[in-house]
């Protein structure tokens, strides 16, 4: 009972707007500390890899970007399903807020993977299974964004893109399996060893710090974007008046 009232309170736009605003520093500060510590550990403290030399240090931005791009797609699809089934606007706002973040990290993962491939494979691009499925994931994000932007009515854009996100998330494991299957037939296993349980702690700890740092950064970014999406969906609500009034007072006080 208590959790339900809490849930209802959270899903009401003014509460959500306020709580998301209060949460931002709690995510942003740990994100900044973890990423700085992780990058410092990865660039300075971790020893060079015995096979790849210093080029392996790209992993500290490549692997967390890959993780975020997949996590964002899952979050987006779950939020979209919740929004579609229970007609919760906040869930649609979260899905809309997550998509551009996930797409940008899919792009980062592809770009750093390609840069990493140049010294390791000798070419900027190989049709490696992971790079190819990451590319298809980026296409899925672009399709989602294209559908969203094709609708003028935000409620309709929410529901239509929610159906696409759900169909897409069912497809992601199938795409992953099919690309791995295709790749194993046409190429040997990749020469690039990207992490693994054999990593010494001095390499592994910065990687874990980066994973958590990127995840916290997503949470902070999602809070900011959810606030924007809530505002877009609540143009004429009266609670905005209080918000505007408070803002006006603080501005006149300074």
């Amino acid at each position: 009972m208590g959790t339900w009232t809490w849930f209802h309170k959270l899903s009401s736009p003014p509460h959500c707007y306020r709580i998301a605003g209060q949460l931002i520093p709690w995510f942003a500060i740990p994100a900044a500390l973890l990423i700085v510590a992780g990058i410092y550990g990865g660039l300075v403290r971790a020893p060079a890899d015995y096979q790849q030399g210093d080029a392996f240090r790209i992993i500290y931005v490549h692997a967390p970007a890959a993780w975020l791009s997949l996590m964002c797609y899952t979050v987006m699809a779950v939020a979209a399903a919740v929004g579609l089934v229970w007609r919760i606007k906040l869930a649609h706002a979260l899905a809309a807020a997550t998509a551009p973040i996930g797409a940008s990290f899919a792009l980062l993962c592809l770009a750093t993977g390609s840069i990493w491939g140049k010294p390791m494979w000798g070419t900027w691009w190989t049709w490696d299974a992971r790079l190819t499925s990451q590319l298809i994931l980026l296409f899925l994000y672009l399709g989602y964004q294209a559908l969203r932007s094709a609708y003028d009515d935000i409620g309709k854009a929410d529901r239509a893109s929610a159906v696409l996100a759900i169909v897409g998330v069912v497809n992601v494991p199938i795409i992953h399996f099919s690309v791995n299957w295709w790749n194993s037939l046409h190429q040997g296993s990749t020469v690039l060893r990207r992490g693994g349980p054999a990593m010494p702690a001095s390499m592994l700890v910065p990687l874990i710090l980066c994973f958590f740092g990127f995840t916290f950064l997503y949470a902070a970014l999602a809070c900011v974007r959810v606030r924007a999406e809530v505002l877009r969906r609540e143009r004429n609500a009266h609670w905005l008046q209080d918000l505007a009034g408070r803002r006006g007072r603080t501005e006149s006080a300074t």
């Binding site: 899925l140 559908l147 696409l164 169909v167 897409g168 099919s178």
Partner: peptide, 14 residues
């Protein structure tokens, strides 16, 4: 095409 093409890549592969 933007929506459907990425979804049918497994069909093409198999």
């Amino acid at each position: 095409s933007l929506l459907v093409l990425p979804l049918i890549m497994p069909v093409l592969i198999f």
